[in-house]
Simulated scan of single mutants.
Amino acid sequence: MNQAKINDIQDEIIEEFSIFEDWMDKYAYLIELGNSLEPLDEKYKVELNLIEGCQSRVWLQAECENGIVTFKAESDAVIVKGIIALLIRVLTNHTPDEIINADLYFINKIGLNEHLSPTRSNGLVSMVKQMRFYAMAFKAKNA
């Protein structure tokens, strides 16, 4: 896995979203992506895994095995669940360094940042921040 792989995944996402003309269709696709997210085990739905700064409840679970980080998440809001599904798709199965250094350009390219309410935008920033925080913690632990 490498940085190029992260960008390849982002390019796939940009291409998928370019199919849709209007934002109602893009939201519908986001919801579909969220619904395809594997449900998070109840044991991970704890206060510790809740992301601060999100309007809705988002639980994020991260694990690092053999230097590769995997993320799982769940949200009680359908759009947010779709957003976290995209972030997981881009950032899971990569090294802590790749996650920390990833330029998540797909967010702007698909217009997500422009079409979210301010509170959802803050939530998106919080989700990315939390995923990078986990990556930094794993990197420090394995250093």
Rank of each mutant, 00 (worst) to 15 (best):
Q3V: 10
Q3F: 11
N7G: 07
D8Q: 15
D8H: 13
D11W: 08
E12Q: 15
I13H: 11
I13G: 09
I14S: 10
I14E: 14
I14P: 05
E15H: 12
F17L: 12
F17S: 11
S18Q: 11
S18E: 12
F20H: 12
E21R: 13
D22W: 09
D22F: 13
D25L: 13
K26I: 10
Y27M: 12
Y27H: 08
A28Q: 12
A28S: 15
Y29S: 05
Y29Q: 07
Y29I: 10
L30E: 00
I31L: 10
E32H: 11
L33R: 09
G34P: 00
G34E: 01
G34Y: 02
S36G: 10
S36K: 15
L37G: 04
E38Y: 10
E38G: 09
D41F: 06
E42D: 14
E42T: 11
E42M: 11
K43S: 13
Y44N: 07
E47M: 09
L48G: 10
L48T: 11
L50T: 12
S56L: 09
R57N: 14
A62V: 05
A62H: 05
C64M: 11
N66D: 15
N66G: 10
N66V: 04
G67P: 02
K72Q: 15
K72I: 02
K72Y: 07
A73R: 02
D76N: 15
D76W: 09
I79Y: 03
I79W: 00
V80Q: 01
K81E: 00
K81M: 00
I83S: 01
I83P: 01
I84E: 01
L87R: 03
L87M: 13
L87D: 01
I88L: 07
I88F: 06
R89G: 07
V90D: 04
L91G: 02
T92N: 09
N93W: 07
N93V: 04
H94A: 07
T95E: 08
T95A: 10
D97F: 06
D97P: 06
E98K: 04
I99Y: 01
N101C: 06
N101G: 08
N101P: 05
Y105W: 09
N108V: 05
K109V: 06
N113T: 14
L116G: 00
L116V: 05
R120M: 06
N122V: 03
N122S: 11
N122Y: 03
S126C: 07
M127C: 02
K129F: 09
Q130F: 03
A143V: 08
